[in-house]
């Protein structure tokens, strides 16, 4: 008989000030404080970060892969959202 599952946390590490926290994995821990300690032991043993976030995995709302095309595909045809779509004469210089 399995033990009661320990809550899962997603771990985000800021490598150094000036960069964003990046997702690097998950840990199990009974509460937030222990999740931080576990994340520190697991993901920052070699100077990988200066700041940690832990977020309950259950709090993350994800988009459905089945809706990927509906959500993201329409942008492919909207190339006018990119600067290279517009023609500016060379004489104008960098813009």
């Amino acid at each position: 008989m399995s033990e009661k599952p320990m809550p899962l946390w997603e771990v985000f590490v800021r490598a150094r000030n000036g960069t964003a926290h990046r997702h690097c994995g998950s840990v199990h821990a009974p509460d937030a404080e222990m999740a931080l300690q576990a994340a520190r032991d697991l993901f920052t043993r070699r100077g990988e970060g200066v700041s940690l976030w832990v977020v309950p995995s259950s709090a993350i709302v994800a988009s459905d892969p089945a809706e990927k095309d509906m959500l993201f595909e329409p942008t492919a045809s909207k190339i006018y959202r990119h600067p290279t779509f517009y023609e500016i004469p060379e004489e104008v210089g960098h813009m």
């Binding site: 399995s2 033990e3 009661k4 599952p5 320990m6 899962l8 994995g25 998950s26 840990v27 199990h28 032991d41 697991l42 043993r45």
Partner: peptide, 20 residues
């Protein structure tokens, strides 16, 4: 120990729990 934990977490994304 850390490698074991990374891997259990990877397996868990497939719908099995670490306890199992």
């Amino acid at each position: 120990a850390g490698h074991g934990l990374y891997l259990y977490a990877a397996a868990e994304t497939l719908g099995v729990s670490r306890e199992e």
